[in-house]
Amino acid sequence: MKRILSALLLLVGAHASAAAPDIQKDNLYPKVEMQTSMGTIVVELDRTRAPITVDNFLNYVVKGEYDNTIFHRVIAGFVVQGGGVGPKMDMKKDGKTIVNESGNGLSNAVGTIAMAREGDPHSATRQFYFNVADNTKLDPSPRRWGYAVFGNIVEGLDVVQAMSEVATGHNATLNWQDVPMAPIILKTAKLLPVK
């Protein structure tokens, strides 16, 4: 019986370690390349300031969860948001919510990437946004939680700015405003190798 139990525990342990994705836990500033229908964007993430948020985002990246999604909310002079909706306006499955790491010293400045959330400050899961303006009103204050910034664009800010200027309107499927009239596709998101 002990042999069977030992073998079973080894098998479970091997399966768990094989299933764990490589998110470069020792890399404090991992980079992710996003191939979109409007061009390439590279973001550098800051694990020193937002370790939980970076790990959460990278888990979605390495599992291919962002591939073939759309940027579904675009507001000129404000944000470009994506990560949770497919091209047929299908909502992607959310993982667990994460702790809000706003107040980490990173501001919602132009060219940064941050986590979208609902009214609950700890409700972020998979959706993210790019700031296309200095949105300091999204930063925390003594009276409210902010939106957690976890990196910045190091290549392709012009691509994101162009995204922010596309025509948008109401989408009847999701009953949302600010949806691009022509879909902006996030074709792939991949974790770049450490250099």
Rank of each mutant, 00 (worst) to 15 (best):
L5Y: 08
L10Q: 08
V12W: 07
A14W: 08
H15I: 13
S17Y: 12
A19P: 02
A20C: 09
A20T: 15
P21M: 15
D22T: 07
I23W: 02
K25Y: 04
D26L: 12
D26Y: 09
P30W: 06
E33W: 01
S37M: 03
M38T: 00
G39S: 11
V42G: 03
L45C: 04
D46V: 06
D46F: 14
T48A: 15
I52W: 00
N56D: 14
F71Y: 15
F71I: 06
V74N: 04
I75G: 05
V79D: 03
V80P: 00
Q81C: 11
Q81D: 11
V85T: 15
M89E: 13
M89I: 01
M91V: 13
K93A: 09
K93V: 11
I98C: 09
S102F: 08
S102Q: 13
S102T: 04
G103K: 14
S107Y: 11
N108V: 13
A109D: 15
A109Y: 09
T112D: 06
M115A: 10
M115R: 09
A116T: 12
G119M: 08
S123L: 09
F128E: 03
F130C: 04
F130E: 07
A133V: 12
T136Y: 14
S141M: 04
P142L: 03
R143Q: 12
G146L: 04
V154Q: 01
V154F: 05
V160W: 01
A162H: 01
S164G: 15
S164H: 05
A167F: 02
A167P: 01
N171I: 02
N171W: 00
N171L: 03
A172G: 03
A172H: 08
A172K: 14
N175A: 15
Q177C: 00
D178W: 10
D178E: 08
V179W: 02
M181G: 00
M181D: 05
A182R: 14
L186I: 01
K187L: 12
T188N: 05
T188C: 11
L192G: 02
L192T: 11
K195E: 10
